[in-house]
Amino acid sequence: MADTILVVVEQREGKLNRVSWETLAGGQALAADTGWALEAAVVGSGVAGFAAEIAAKKISKVYAVESPKLEPYTPDAFSAALKQFLESRQPKLVLMPHTYQVRDFVPKLATAMGRTAISDCIGYKKDGAKLVFTRQMFQGKLAADVSFACDAPWFVTFQNGAFRGDKVEAGASAASVETVNVQIADGVVRNKPQEVFKEAKQAVDLTQAEIIVSIGRGIKEQKNIELAKQLAEALGGEIAASRPICDSGWLPMDRQIGSSGQTVAPKLYLALGISGAIQHIVGMKGSRTIVAINKDSEAPIFEIADYAVVGNLFDIVPPLTEEVKKAKAVG
């Protein structure tokens, strides 16, 4: 049997997760480069509709892996279901998006199968017959090419933004959909998840802000936030922050930008003393213009900045605020 690549897509609250399309695009690219067949699976209870949605894409086959025990999500049930399914299918490569859900069960699944996962990859390279997967290390300061040294199936998870979801190719005709009912014995599922909820109401809606001045740990002390606030005020913008600032209680949670906070796309995002970890970047990379001020010339935030200032924010922000005021006064 020919080698196959299996993409496990993620559905939540009646919708396919956006990053699932990215991983599918990655799967199509890998299939083109390796000549391997591409298949997909959607796991859950009553997921045939999602399978049909994917079957419209350029893909050989789609599976709906079903059991009533898969709803609500638990790592025990997902790992058991996929283990059964993968052992019967024997794909070469299993691709998934690196979501909170996937990182919750994939290490368990891979371990249960005596395999390993190369997690949080940003791409791949094919070097002759060898496949390597690229991942960021040291919070994005370095990258590493990593290869498998074990038998298939090989598990790979891809980071948000690794591929373009809108580049998924449509198929000439709909692929076939097969429902696979998996058996999950009583007692396998140990966790009892409750309803998903959102914490207290938000006081500000940063998604509407046109200008955001965002601070990171480079601000050093709570009292220094005043400097950034003055700049934000001069620019007519809102203040926001990286996670550690909100974790410390220096600014409320609703001003946190990133994967566990708000996603924003203002005209101007000014990052002061933010290193540019991926979990921050996913929340602001859609900004039209990104300005970064950081004392470390190798800070990953500069990778995505349009304008960059390497220097001490405490030297630069006060004169910047003054210049902005002057410019505004001139009108």
Binding site: I118, Q136, M137, A143, A144, D145, V146, A149, I304, D306
Partner: peptide, 21 residues
């Protein structure tokens, strides 16, 4: 034995045009 191998570590290439002031 490890089930995966680090082949190479490197400084990532910049893809965006950044103006340094």
């Amino acid at each position: 034995a490890n089930l995966q191998t680090i082949e190479r570590l490197y400084v990532p290439q910049k893809t965006k045009q950044t103006q340094f002031l």
